[in-house]
Write a protein that binds this DNA or RNA. Structure first.
Lengths: 108, 108
DNA sequence: ATTTTGCGAAACCAAATAGTTGCATATATA
DNA sequence: TATATATGCAACTATTTGGTTTCGCAAAAT
C-alpha cells in the first residue's frame, strides 16, 4: 500500500469504485460511507487515504467530521488513456459497415 | 492471482497496460513482448494469461508461436463506467459557463 | 468537567500479486 | 532422428494489499 499510487490502481478495488460512486452524488464522512459496506470504518478510511493520495478525493474538515469530496476531473486521466483504443472501436465499426454495405450490394 | 479477474484489475498493473498498448498496434508473441520489458518471458506469459482470462487479449496459435491479439471492445466496460462521471465534468463546465456569463453581464 | 463521538495512525495478519526458476510439451530445423 | 525454439505450467518467494484491532487525539455533547 506504499509504493504505487495512481488512478488505475485506485479504481482496481471494487470497494473503492463503490466509494467513488457514492462520493459522486455528495460529499460524505468516513462513518457515513462505512454504513454502506460490511467493512469497518478504519478500512474505509484506508481506502479514502488512497483515493486522497492520488487526488481522486479531497477531505474537508467540518468540526469533528471530515467530508470527502470526489475530484471527478482526475478520472479524465483514464478517459484520456482510453482514447487510443476508441480509434480501434471506430475502425472495427467502419469495417462492419463495409461488410454490411457489401451484403447490400450482393442482394441487388 | 486467482479470485478477482476483471478489466479494472487487469489495467491496474503498469506492465499490463504497456502490453495492451503494444498489442493495440499488432498481434505479438510472448517472446516478442518480453523483449520490451526487463522481466522474464514467463512473467509476461502470466500477464497474458490474466489479460486472456478477462477477455482483453486472445491467443492465436500459428505453428509453435502464439500470437496475442487485443480485444479492444472489452475496454468499453471502463468507458461505460466513466460515463457517470462525464456528467459531472459537463456540469462543472456549465457552472463555469454560468460564471463566465455572469462576468459578461456585469461588464455590460 | 466528564463522556461520547469521529477520526487517523500503528501494529498485526491472511491472502493476493508479481516475479523467479525449473520443468514438460509441441513444433520447427539440422 | 536429434536438437533448437516457443510456449505454458507448477512450485516457490518477496512484497503488496485489504482487512482487523487497538490506540490517541480533538471536537461535540452531557
Amino acid at each position: 500500500m506504499e509504493t504505487r499510487r495512481d488512478v488505475f490502481q485506485a479504481i482496481a478495488d471494487p470497494t473503492r469504485r463503490a466509494i467513488i460512486i457514492l462520493l459522486a452524488t455528495q460529499a460524505m464522512t468516513p462513518n457515513a460511507l462505512a454504513e454502506h459496506f460490511q467493512t469497518s470504518r478504519q478500512a474505509v478510511s484506508k481506502h479514502l487515504r488512497i483515493l486522497t493520495e492520488c487526488h481522486l478525493a479531497k477531505p474537508e474538515q467540518k468540526g469533528r467530521e471530515i467530508f470527502y469530496t470526489l475530484e471527478a476531473e482526475k478520472m479524465k486521466e483514464i478517459d484520456k488513456w482510453l482514447t487510443q483504443f476508441r480509434k480501434i472501436w471506430e475502425t472495427r465499426f467502419s469495417q462492419l459497415d463495409n461488410v454490411l454495405a457489401n451484403l447490400k450490394k450482393q442482394k441487388k
